[in-house]
Design a protein around this nucleic acid. Structure first.
Length: 490
RNA sequence: UCCUCAGUAGCUCAGUUGGUUAGAGCGGCGGACUGUUAAUCCGUAGGUCGUAGGUUCAAGUCCUACCUGGGGAGCCA
């Protein structure tokens, strides 16, 4: 799948498996290097499935048993690393078009089959999480890893094409005013014996930065600074939340994409969010089809014991469905009306009943709107100011703010964003109402004092996008090394 | 953090109202097979039943605490 397009392989010492599988250079000699998935066969002939991560499909190596030492053959076990030189031939088998008939085999790295945890059989995702250092070697994680790369690349390509600048916002921050959740503290102080001041409080003036610092929970505020000069920017960086969240949708360390655009109002913001998501999904369909097909089959296999009504939509169909349909846009107030008059609310089926304007929407409500009522992605806007962040622009009604949440089936909130409050006076007033310390935020407020303009932005949780695109159901399976409460292994 | 379910062989699981020597499939190993596709067939090894207490003549099974994992909720992306 990841091919040069040109015949670069002829210049290299080895050929990638994916390139070879698409090649029709029958009769020529190639060298491949990779890891053994399985070996099978008889006294006369053995078949080795070799994979080097270049694609979901393995290369079949045909080994004529007469031509090789039995001792060498015995070392070709699941997980072993090989270098194989041989002749490309049309395959007699039906599962692949071509195969490599081995002339020279070198075992680069042995793999003891009694100890190697990955066996040529199905493993549970939970087990693979415990051996995350090896799970790249499975079909599923190979596919996810390739798709993840493609999505990272597509994010940058999308914004680059639109003239956005990528900004590296700080990972260590002294600002605790973002209000986006619990933070991880960063310190070089001796925790066993920290320096103390006269009041016997910890003396942070002795800390590395001379004040308390944390890992960032969002690059948005710094992103706004850049946008109010560069017009359109985006960040794509790691984000840290020390929430004790134990769900299949939360990580303590995740990657977030945060575009911030000067001169965009809320509608422009929604247009961009929808175009962005559709671009990424289209990119996956255009560049990752084999991996998507594999994941689709995997998902259907996993769900075959479920009732038909509980099975998810076929993965590729689902992705196309999102591409082909406009996201539904409605206000929070309209959503509350729909929910109040909905069957589950009237029948008391909601765990949290809808109690008019001001009710914070629970995930059961969001799921009802997306999965039952509209049956397509929904963008909710204009939430009550009390349940949203201080920086969101206040509407004329003085009750709601220009927030937007993009809700996806199964995942819930995939994007959260808003038009920002650009009016200095209104922003300061909101900060006071919500007890945000103005003094610490002087640099943020300066943008509203000097040449302030309407602007907007949003945050996309990258792993939540990955959940949607891959059809995986646990966020720990779409990031190589998940960090969650009580888990920082590897 | 709360609710809920689970933890038995390398993996996935079964194990009856508590009863004597804890089972299966897959994987591993040995063998058979002239082209296999997670090959097939025959044979074989492999267990401190999550940890610590408790109840009982007797605990994989019952009770308590803790640990770990799954699902759901909250917080959110």
């Amino acid at each position: 799948m990841w091919t040069s397009g040109l015949k670069i392989y002829k210049l290299m010492q080895r050929t990638k498996v994916a390139d070879l599988l698409r090649s029709n250079e029958i009769g020529k000699t190639f060298t491949v290097k990779g890891w053994v998935r399985t070996r099978r066969g008889n006294k006369k002939v053995n078949f080795v499935a070799l994979n080097d991560g270049s694609g979901i499909n393995n290369l079949q190596i045909v080994v004529d048993m007469d031509q090789f030492d039995e001792a060498l053959i015995r070392r070709i076990t699941t997980g072993a690393a090989l270098s194989v030189e041989g002749e490309l031939k049309e395959s007699l088998g039906s599962a692949q078009k071509v195969e490599l008939h081995a002339r020279k085999i070198e075992v680069l790295g042995d793999c003891d089959p009694e100890k190697y945890p990955l066996q040529p059989k199905k493993h549970s995702l939970e087990f693979l999480r415990e051996i995350a250092h090896l799970r790249f070697r499975t079909n599923t994680f190979g596919a996810i890893t390739r798709i993840r790369h493609a999505m990272i690349f597509a994010v940058h390509q999308f914004f680059n094409q639109k003239g956005f600048y990528n900004i590296h916002t700080p990972i260590i921050t002294a600002s605790d005013a973002e209000g986006a959740g619990e933070m991880f503290q960063v310190t070089t102080l001796d925790l066993e014996n920290p320096p103390r001041n006269e009041e016997n409080k910890i003396d942070y003036s002795k800390d590395f930065f001379g004040k308390p610092t944390n890992l960032t929970v969002s690059g948005q505020l710094e992103g706004e600074l850049a946008a109010l000069a560069m017009s359109e920017i985006y960040t794509f960086g790691p984000t840290f939340r020390a929430e004790n969240s134990n769900t299949s949708r939360h990580l303590a360390e995740f990657w977030m994409i945060e575009p911030e655009m000067a001169f965009y109002d809320l509608n422009d913001n929604m247009d961009l969010a929808e175009e962005f998501l559709k671009y990424l999904i289209q990119y996956a369909l255009d560049h990752c089809m084999e991996d998507l097909q594999f994941l689709s089959k995997r998902l259907q296999e996993e769900e075959k014991n479920k009732k038909a009504s509980e099975r998810s939509m076929e993965l590729i169909e689902k992705l196309k469905f999102v591409l082909e349909n406009q996201f539904v846009r409605l206000t929070y107030t309209e959503a509350i009306n729909i929910l109040e008059n909905s069957k589950p609310n009237k029948k008391g089926k909601f765990q949290y009943p809808i109690q008019g304007f001001g009710t914070d929407l629970q995930s059961e409500h969001e799921r009802y709107l997306v999965e039952k009522h509209f049956k397509k992605p929904v963008i909710l806007t204009d939430y009550p100011k009390e349940i949203k962040a201080f920086y969101m622009k206040l509407n004329e009604d003085n009750k709601t703010v220009r927030a937007m949440d993009v809700l996806f089936p199964q995942i819930g909130e995939i994007i959260g964003g808003s038009q920002r409050e650009e009016d200095y006076g209104k922003l300061v007033q909101r900060m006071r109402e919500m007890n945000i310390p103005e003094e610490e935020m002087w640099w943020f407020l300066d943008t509203r004092r000097f040449g302030s303009v309407p602007h907007s932005g949003f945050g996309l949780g990258f792993e939540r996008l990955m959940l949607f695109v891959t059809g995986m159901t646990n966020i720990r399976d779409v990031i190589p090394f998940p960090r969650t409460p009580k888990n920082a292994e590897f």
